[in-house]
């Protein structure tokens, strides 16, 4: 693997996670618990789409085969997608969506903080710009998890269930392979083992403030670095890509 190929792969992973999380959050459109939250969730989806546009465009340029951001988004199947597993999991109830956002945004905050110092100027600039929105997503999610955890008996039970169910998918975010190693050596990628402790500490703090138990099971589902996904991604792509598959090259 050349450095260029690794960077393509790395950028694709970041872009895919953003895009798939955006698609999930956009499913809340018109279904939010209150109008204000509906706007917040779809706002976040737009932030993620914007980020994925930049990343997938850059990935296409790195690959050098003339693929645009749209081609990468709409003409790959699930075994060609490299988003982390957490991003593709179904929205569930509002508690599940907030816990998923908390886990992902806490990861992204550490990732993009470190990525600001990347030797790759495009990724460093994107990281700097992205951090502002990530800070907001994280605060919003953490506030809600704390609020739900300390709310009613039902909200507490539901958000605890969400934490328990999503926990085994958090390890996948921190998995690294040859791509990461090659780019870490070139000071381009972030060594995810260095941000794991920060993520752990932060999440422990939020769960404690929310009066929630941190799961003790250590089994972690992995696979996204090899494009092995849960059964949910195929269905998500089926909906997201429907129009381009039914009417190739359709524009509006």
């Amino acid at each position: 693997m050349t450095q260029q190929e690794a960077l393509f792969q790395y950028t694709l992973r970041l872009g895919d996670t953003s895009l798939i999380h955006a698609q999930r959050l956009s499913e809340w459109c018109s279904n939010g618990p209150i109008l204000e939250e509906d706007l917040a969730l779809t706002n976040f989806a737009l932030d993620f789409i914007g980020r994925s546009q930049v990343l997938l465009t850059y990935a296409g340029a790195l690959e050098g085969k003339g693929r645009t951001d749209d081609m990468l988004a709409y003409r790959r199947n699930e075994r060609q997608y490299f988003n982390c597993l957490l991003a593709e999991l179904p929205n569930g109830d509002f508690g599940v969506t907030m816990v998923r956002l908390l886990f992902l945004a806490a990861f992204e905050k550490e990732l993009f903080t470190a990525l600001q110092n990347s030797e790759d100027e495009t990724l460093a600039a994107l990281a700097k710009k992205t951090l502002k929105e990530v800070r907001y997503h994280l605060e919003h999610a953490a506030d809600w998890v704390i609020r739900l955890g300390n709310g009613t008996e039902e909200s507490h039970a539901r958000v605890q269930k969400a934490v328990n169910e999503l926990w085994m998918f958090t390890g996948d975010m921190f998995d690294m392979d040859e791509t990461d190693k090659l780019l870490i050596a070139a000071d381009i990628a972030v060594d995810l083992s260095t941000i794991k402790t920060k993520w752990d500490n932060y999440i422990s703090g939020v769960l404690e403030a929310a009066n929630l138990q941190q799961p003790t099971s250590s089994y972690m589902q992995s696979g996204s670095k090899n494009a092995i996904h849960t059964e949910y991604l195929g269905h998500l792509l089926g909906e997201m890509q429907y129009l381009q598959l039914a009417y190739p090259y359709a524009k509006w």
Partner: peptide, 18 residues
């Protein structure tokens, strides 16, 4: 609508400052 000050600021941001 919001249950506390902080949520009110966040909701205001998302509703009126998009």
């Amino acid at each position: 609508h919001a249950s506390d000050k902080k949520m009110a600021i966040q909701n205001a941001r998302d509703t009126y400052s998009r």
